Computed example of a mutant assay.
Amino acid sequence: MAAARFLVEGKVQGVFFRASTREQALRLGLRGIARNLADGRVEVVAAGADDAIEALARWLQHGPPAARVDTVQREDFDAAAVAAAGFTTG
């Protein structure tokens, strides 16, 4: 099992980015959270199968139709650190 933290920058707040990320993550069988940060970015923390994390990483490069993603930073870590069940938005 893998886990990653993504920081997504661009026009990513107010465009259903978190809700769309949650839908995508649940389709992929991931658990974690997507939340808005005060600086305008969206933070996504996800845990699950390696291939599902990679699929989410690819999806985050563009996000939902109304979003404009400029950059995505990724940090991999131990999946045990993600305690959430399911996938939530904060």
Results as ranks from 00 to 15, higher is better:
36 N>D: 15
46 A>C: 04
34 A>Q: 07
54 E>A: 03
74 R>T: 12
30 L>R: 06
75 E>D: 11
89 T>V: 15
36 N>F: 14
5 R>C: 03
1 M>G: 04
87 F>H: 13
43 E>H: 08
62 H>S: 11
50 D>C: 06
68 R>H: 09
70 D>F: 06
54 E>I: 01
25 A>E: 15
50 D>E: 14
38 A>Q: 09
16 F>M: 12
33 I>Q: 15
37 L>P: 05
18 R>E: 04
34 A>H: 13
3 A>T: 01
83 A>T: 15
16 F>A: 14
6 F>T: 08
21 T>F: 14
77 F>E: 06
40 G>L: 01
24 Q>E: 15
1 M>L: 03
51 D>F: 09
45 V>T: 14
72 V>A: 03
28 L>R: 15
76 D>L: 10
69 V>N: 00
66 A>I: 05
35 R>L: 14
85 A>P: 14
50 D>F: 07
13 Q>I: 02
41 R>C: 10
41 R>A: 12
38 A>S: 13
22 R>I: 11
11 K>S: 11
16 F>G: 07
30 L>W: 11
65 P>L: 00
1 M>Y: 04
35 R>K: 15
48 G>P: 13
88 T>A: 15
51 D>Y: 11
52 A>E: 01
13 Q>H: 05
54 E>C: 00
71 T>G: 02
71 T>A: 04
71 T>L: 00
84 A>H: 09
27 R>C: 14
51 D>M: 09
60 L>I: 11
44 V>E: 05
58 R>P: 12
76 D>G: 05
22 R>C: 10
20 S>H: 10
19 A>V: 05
13 Q>W: 05
28 L>Q: 14
2 A>V: 04
82 V>L: 06
26 L>Y: 10
40 G>M: 07
37 L>N: 13
76 D>Q: 08
46 A>S: 09
62 H>L: 04
73 Q>T: 05
23 E>K: 13
6 F>Y: 13
29 G>Q: 02
48 G>N: 08
9 E>F: 03
86 G>P: 11
22 R>K: 15
65 P>V: 04
77 F>G: 06
26 L>P: 02
44 V>S: 10
37 L>M: 14
15 V>N: 10
63 G>R: 01
